Computed example of a mutant assay.
Amino acid sequence: MTTSSTAGPRSTAKKTTARTTATKTSARKIAEQLRVKDDESPWNEEEIREVRGVLLEEIEQHRVELKLAEDELDDLLRASGDGAGDDQADAGAKTAEREHEISVAANARASLRQAEHALEQLEAGTYGICENCGNPIGKLRLQARPRATLCMTCQAKQDRH
């Protein structure tokens, strides 16, 4: 047992170093694969790590938001009972609050899916390609909105409809 406790920190340090090296190699490979617009510089490892970090933070944030919204909705449903004896104003307020929590949960779930999809695309080397026209989305747009799946032209067309 004493041997494993002394080996533990070294083993952890080796795993961390291996993970960091793998991440650098992975970031380098991803950067080499990603397409950019003609007037943009290629992605570099630092930019890839930054975008990955932002996406991971968003994923965690949306998971927390979703859990809170679902818990709040569960609490509302338990507290509301069958609604017997509620006047119209109380029933309306409860319905509005319930609908609000359903909406919050749906938005968090959709944002979570988008962030997870973007991370999957990043890892696959297909990140930054417009899902509509197949052209590069653009680094600046992706750095501002890492979950973007459409180039500005296709996004504008979609917004008009």
Rank of each mutant, 00 (worst) to 15 (best):
G125Q: 09
I102H: 06
S103Y: 09
T126K: 02
S103H: 12
P9Y: 08
L112A: 03
Q114S: 04
L140M: 05
R160H: 03
D90H: 07
T6C: 03
K24P: 00
P146L: 06
E72T: 11
K14R: 14
R147C: 04
L68G: 03
G83T: 03
Q143F: 12
L122E: 06
A96M: 14
C130F: 08
E65Q: 15
T23H: 08
T153I: 07
A148H: 00
R113K: 15
K14G: 02
M1R: 03
G134D: 07
R52I: 03
T6N: 05
D75C: 06
C133D: 09
A22H: 15
N132A: 05
C154R: 01
T16A: 15
L112E: 06
H117T: 11
H161W: 13
G134Q: 09
R52F: 06
I102F: 11
Q88T: 15
R147I: 02
S111Q: 11
A96C: 06
T16R: 14
G8I: 03
H62V: 03
G128V: 00
E99M: 14
A105M: 08
R35D: 14
C130A: 06
E99V: 00
I30V: 11
N107C: 04
H100D: 13
S103I: 07
S11L: 12
N44T: 10
E70A: 01
T12M: 14
L122Y: 01
A69Y: 12
H161V: 15
R78W: 09
H62P: 00
C133M: 03
Q158R: 13
K24W: 10
E70Y: 02
E116S: 10
G92R: 10
Q88F: 14
T23W: 01
D75L: 10
V36F: 05
G85V: 09
D75F: 05
C154L: 04
T2A: 15
A156V: 13
A110E: 15
G83V: 09
E65W: 11
V54Y: 00
R113N: 10
I59Q: 04
E40Y: 09
T2C: 01
P42L: 12
G8N: 06
E57L: 04
D86E: 15
A27P: 06
L142R: 00
R145H: 10
G128K: 05
R78N: 12
V64D: 08
S41H: 04
S11Q: 13
